[in-house]
């Protein structure tokens, strides 16, 4: 028995946007950034059992049992009214999952999967669980063909990365901004550790993809794009860069007033990157 447990916001059996091929994605609850632009802000907070969401649920899927909010998935209609009622960006629908439970899910679907991606929230806040899970996958004859990926904001410290990397096949690393002040404004944190993580992952040959969210008026500034080009050039022009377009879907608060990134906005920046010799620039297949 493996006792490691994770607090899971959501699990998807199918994703073609979280790494190579078809992936099972586990979204872990909780984040150490607080990005205004977050498209799933309900994964940021951890439930404090205040109970505000209970009366908001029209399907009576939430109750308070012994001072704790309890969730009944059978009653849930996935209307997300509870998420809107939560004042701390938490999610009363989170479930606790063991390593065995995730392995069972993978075993059920492994024929149709290329791998698993741990996302969030910030997945690495539950690094111990990830390490245990990936180790168990690689020890299982039916599952070891699955590649093990992490989607991260890069805030994890280097010693923790060193423990995770031997069982991790690739990391999708988000860089929210290159300018330190802009990063602070957008996320509430410095980007110093993100840049450290980036170098460390690159050196360990585990950086699968660098992800950059284009927010018009913020991260599309010429100085930012220039800094992004320089950063990628320093890692090597074969580094895969994915440009994501800021959209309003899921976003709450003042960022809903920010302009969204159009296909044209993205293509201009992609063109600049390619012009500077960056070979693998991926742009969205869809703009919503």
């Amino acid at each position: 028995m493996n006792s490691a447990q994770a607090t899971v916001s959501k699990i998807l059996n199918y994703s073609c946007v979280d790494g190579p091929g078809n992936r099972l994605v586990v979204f872990l609850q909780g984040c150490n950034f607080n990005c205004s632009s977050c498209h799933n802000p309900h994964t940021i907070g951890i439930c404090n059992h205040c109970g505000d969401c209970v009366p908001a649920c029209p399907h009576k899927a939430l109750t308070v049992l012994e001072g704790k909010v309890s969730f009944d998935p059978q009653q849930c209609d996935q209307c997300d009214a509870c998420l809107r009622a939560c004042s701390i960006n938490a999610n009363p629908m989170v479930q606790t999952m063991s390593v065995e439970a995730v392995l069972a899910r993978l075993t059920e679907h492994h024929l149709m999967l290329d791998g698993i991606t741990l996302s969030g929230g910030e997945a690495t806040l539950q690094a111990h669980f990830i390490g245990q899970l990936f180790k168990a996958i690689k020890a299982d004859a039916r599952l070891r063909h699955l590649s093990c990926f992490i989607d991260s904001n890069g805030q994890l410290g280097s010693s923790a990365w060193q423990r995770l990397l031997p069982v991790t096949d690739g990391v999708l690393l988000d860089i929210k901004a290159l300018d330190a002040d802009l990063h602070q404004t957008l996320t509430g944190r410095s980007n110093q550790r993100v840049l450290q993580s980036l170098r460390l992952l690159h050196q360990a040959d585990k950086l699968h993809e660098l992800r950059y969210l284009v927010i018009p008026g913020f991260t599309d500034r010429p100085s930012e794009v220039h800094a992004l080009v320089e950063l990628v050039q320093s890692l090597g022009t074969a580094t895969q860069v994915r440009l994501n377009a800021f959209q309003h879907h899921g976003v709450i608060g003042p960022a809903r007033e920010w302009p969204t990134a159009s296909k044209n906005d993205i293509e201009i920046i992609a063109g600049q990157l390619r012009q500077q010799g960056i070979e693998r620039v991926i742009t969205p297949a869809v703009y919503i």
Partner: peptide, 23 residues
């Protein structure tokens, strides 16, 4: 029916198809 995002990731469709038939 598959979302258009699969156009950026043809490997996903390949695996889905091969896996479904193997199953």
């Amino acid at each position: 029916t598959l979302e258009e995002t699969i156009k950026n990731n043809p490997q996903a469709l390949f695996t889905l198809c091969k896996g479904a038939l193997a199953a």
